[in-house]
Design a protein around this nucleic acid. Structure first.
Length: 267
DNA sequence: ATGGTTGAGCGTCAA
């Protein structure tokens, strides 16, 4: 069975839910993971999933910021026994188990803190939070080793490799690409995951999933970063079939600053 | 070093 998993930082579900049919037409996902939904749970649009052909929906949202959601064509159970990262209760993680998929698949949807502007944890509490968050997630998954039948997606807000940013040299001191962040992200990945997108796109090739709103012409300047990721446990690597990074989505009307990323598995 | 833009929700804060 072919399974397509999409991750997208939608940057307000209520504002951009009208783009979801376009995304579904373009990528035919079986499971859609969203970040920055910015919608509190009590007013989450309940009928949206069914209307789009995804009858199984989970969401964890709060007022104003953050928020994650999962839309699925297949049934799942929510894995509620997850750590409260950094003790903040801030709606950055949602995990489910898809018992009917393959040998049973576990899926984790993350929204890692962006980290503010100043890349110094002593001066910037948001950056300290980001580093603490990634350290906690690494330790948590390391304690579960060996990890199997698990997919981890999301806006991880770190571009780990030189060709995950438009200029490695110019971004070395910019939050999202500092050595302390890229080292931390790769340490988390290396407790048991493979980068499912880089499996298809060589490290030598530039690849981005985010372009700032603050560029007059994002495509011409092309100052992008690859902040959105799909990781799979090593046992799933032989099931990888393709990846799609939907760059054209950056030109959709009233676009998010992130574009959807899709990986297809044969499970 | 700074500014540039967008979203939530109504003054700024977060990204």
């Amino acid at each position: 069975m072919s399974l397509r998993i999409v991750t997208w930082n939608i940057n307000s579900l209520r504002l951009r839910q009208g783009l979801l049919p376009v995304l579904i037409e373009a990528l035919s996902p079986d499971i859609l993971c969203l970040q920055e939904t910015k919608v509190p749970d009590p007013i989450f649009p309940k009928e949206l999933g069914s209307a789009l052909g995804f009858p199984y929906v989970a969401h964890r949202g709060m007022k104003g910021y953050n928020g994650v959601a999962i839309f699925s064509r297949a049934p799942f159970t929510i894995l509620n026994e997850q750590p409260d990262w950094c003790g903040k209760g801030d709606c950055r993680h949602l995990a489910i188990a898809l018992e009917s998929v393959g040998k049973g698949l576990e899926l984790h949807n993350f929204y890692v803190p962006a980290g503010g502007d100043v890349p110094d944890p002593e001066l910037n509490p948001k950056f300290a939070h980001k580093l603490e968050f990634v350290a906690e997630t690494r330790k948590h998954f390391a304690a579960r080793s060996p990890i199997t039948n698990l997919v981890l997606v999301g806006d991880l807000n770190i571009a780990p490799s030189e060709n995950d940013v438009w200029s490695h040299r110019q971004l070395l001191n910019v939050v999202s690409h500092t050595p302390v962040e890229t080292t931390a992200l790769l340490a988390w990945r290396d407790v048991g995951f493979a980068d499912a997108v880089r499996y298809f796109v060589p490290e030598s090739k530039k690849l981005y999933t985010w372009w700032s709103y603050r560029n007059r012409d994002w495509r011409a300047s092309d100052r992008g970063r690859r902040l959105d990721h799909i990781w799979v446990s090593h046992d799933l690597v032989p099931t990888l079939r393709q990846q799609i990074t939907l760059k054209d989505a950056r030109d959709w009307p009233q676009a998010s600053d992130h574009v959807p990323v899709c990986v297809e598995l044969a499970v």
